[in-house]
Design a protein around this nucleic acid. Sequence first.
DNA 1: GTCAAATATTTTGTATACAAGGTTTGCCAC
DNA 2: GTGGCAAACCTTGTATACAAAATATTTGAC
Lengths: 223, 223
Amino acid sequence: MRNTFHKLRDDIENGILTGDFAPGERLDETQLAERFGVSRTPIREALMQLSAIGLIEFRPRRGALVADYGPKYVFEMFEVMAELEGMAGASAARRHTPEDKTLLLNAHLRCEEATANDDTDAYYYENEAFHHVIYAASQNSFLSEQCALLHRRLRPYRRLQLRVHNRMKASFDEHKQIIEKILSGDAQAARELLLAHVRVQGDRFSDLIASLEKIKAKATSDR
Amino acid sequence: MRNTFHKLRDDIENGILTGDFAPGERLDETQLAERFGVSRTPIREALMQLSAIGLIEFRPRRGALVADYGPKYVFEMFEVMAELEGMAGASAARRHTPEDKTLLLNAHLRCEEATANDDTDAYYYENEAFHHVIYAASQNSFLSEQCALLHRRLRPYRRLQLRVHNRMKASFDEHKQIIEKILSGDAQAARELLLAHVRVQGDRFSDLIASLEKIKAKATSDR
DNA sequence: GTCAAATATTTTGTATACAAGGTTTGCCAC
DNA sequence: GTGGCAAACCTTGTATACAAAATATTTGAC
């Protein structure tokens, strides 16, 4: 069985990724301890782990803050994510097994259902599963882990663009092409399609931030 | 000022990377506490952080073990490292600043000195600095951090091939070409050169393992 | 009434204490 | 002598305690 601090780490991490703990927020150890019904010790151990992967930051004598990356940094993360996904896709095209093929087609089918039902929540979930199948199909477990990790870290930022006009349909169409190239073993094409597929999310995030900045600037000048 | 657990983390990490603590070795918290003259609490906090980045593993009720990746996993890590370095190189070719140019040429110069003196230890150090300059020149701080992190994790495995015949000279020649492509802004060429430059290390590592396996198998059959 | 300084309180960072589980050793049986 | 079981000991995992530092509050002066 897993230990308390494992569970706490996942719970707190989840809280951060779902926005339960907002970026920049201070995480009070005593409060967390009460909330989870444990002592401060395992809470601290969980926080230490989260700080090591960059999800929170320790300020000396001032405790833990939820990391608040600037927009530039988030965009950079999307850039790296795109490259890693491209790599996974290329590797999957070269090395996928027959089982991977089944899994890919199944995952795609479930995405199709979500699209047909116009169920963005379901699509969000199935989309994640689809990408994880690609990671696994790369036959590179380290790459797969890194992709999954970064994917998770970017989750709150992808959330923002969930319901952008027509994005679900566009995403689904891109998946279709990606699958085709992976299954036909066209590594280069798979790489480029995935690169673009992920990059567009970074671009959208940038656009979003830019428009927010503009609004903010306008509000300031109006004052 | 930094806290005790920061220093401990770095010390223990260093111990692992330098081979002071061997892969698979168990890290006794009490022993470490005595050794560093502190209580078990900050030791644990340091270990938690190291476990989060995958340098050690916690076995329930059995404490921390230095992670002992199989050869396949290490090879996979080199594959990802190669891709990330390629990305950094391409990005550096597109976006390096005049200051980056100076830093790159200086780093290269110091590599040249080490080569001229046939000083593999110095070359090892300067080579690392050279690669870090490329990371920074990518102008992508997240990518830079990820590269540095993975680079560090692979250090003990690169160490094995330090004195392979003529590797230093070959490496230096590759650097020369890489610099050329980065400074001339040829992103694609820079990417491919760096990809190959790092991959060769993974290949060498594989070869080494394969030959070790062969020796081991022979020893077994001779029994 | 406001600003500043001093004190009180809260909170972090480290040490110590204790309980549960795992390992080792020693003893007994075969 | 060897194998298995039991008990003692050792280590981890969590809780509590305590000291140092930062923050909040209150009081006093202008």
